[in-house]
């Protein structure tokens, strides 16, 4: 459903991603793991068209999005929750979610979004910037879901968030996968989190995928070795 072929990308002269290929099924959750600086965020940014890709192809549901601008990729069904959440701090929670809604929604937030994140309903008139880290993460996910995506890209969703909320997020992600028929790609450094949610794990090292395993066959020790500094 979501295909990446020979994707290359980088900054200036230095190439960061080297011919990455990946194909993700519908409703699959794939985790991309790796240490800092190995290319996780670069991968996500180039998938969203925030960083122009050097070569390769990205296909979503048979549509080639490689040359599209970011906002058109969103219309095609890609959604992005960036590292560090990047919510709009001085807008209310409600307005934050509304930015993701398509014009046809008329500014009306779908019920099921609030059902997934009840805390956002309670805080809907608070400023986004005044929420706690975990709440902001939920807001960022809700905002991404408001665009009605087919593929959800999450960049390090557990960074700086307390363990109990991490469990909540894991549960919610699995829930929305079935509710919304969603494909999820998540980048992560916390192995316990990915082992809980992912169907397939990939390890990225210096811009190349070096390990690819389904959850059942994962050898924790090998992956941990790639993650330890």
């Amino acid at each position: 459903m979501f295909n990446i072929q020979q994707l290359a990308c980088g900054y200036g002269q230095s190439q960061v991603l080297h011919d990455l290929s990946l194909s993700v099924q519908k409703q699959e959750i794939v985790a991309v793991m790796g240490r800092n600086g190995m290319g996780k965020t670069t991968l996500f940014k180039s998938l969203m068209g925030i960083l122009p890709q050097w070569s390769g192809q990205v296909q979503l549901d048979g549509v080639d999005v490689s040359a599209m601008e970011t906002h058109n990729r969103v219309t095609e069904g890609m959604a992005y929750v960036p590292q560090g959440r990047m919510i709009f701090p001085s807008m209310s929670v409600l307005e934050n979610i509304q930015t993701g809604l398509p014009a046809s929604a008329g500014g009306q937030v779908p019920e099921d979004l609030y059902a997934l994140f009840p805390v956002l309903f309670d805080m809907r008139s608070r400023r986004g910037g005044n929420l706690s880290g975990g709440q902001q993460q939920q807001l960022a996910i809700a905002r991404a879901l408001a665009t009605n995506p087919k593929v959800l890209l999450l960049d390090e969703p557990t960074e700086g968030i307390q363990p109990s909320i991490i469990k909540d997020i894991a549960r919610t992600l699995k829930e929305i996968r079935t509710l919304r028929n969603l494909t999820i790609i998540v980048s992560e450094q916390v192995l316990s989190f990915t082992l809980e949610i992912a169907d397939r794990l990939l390890v990225i090292e210096k811009g190349r995928f070096v390990i690819e395993e389904t959850r059942g066959n994962v050898d924790e020790a090998t992956i941990s070795r790639y993650l330890s500094v």
Binding site: T75, M86, F88, T99
Partner: peptide, 18 residues
């Protein structure tokens, strides 16, 4: 709404489809 979002974070605004 789109103007205010763009003021705060242009890149993120694009990434929510603006």
């Amino acid at each position: 709404l789109h103007v205010r979002a763009t003021v705060q974070n242009r890149i993120m605004s694009r990434a929510v489809g603006i």
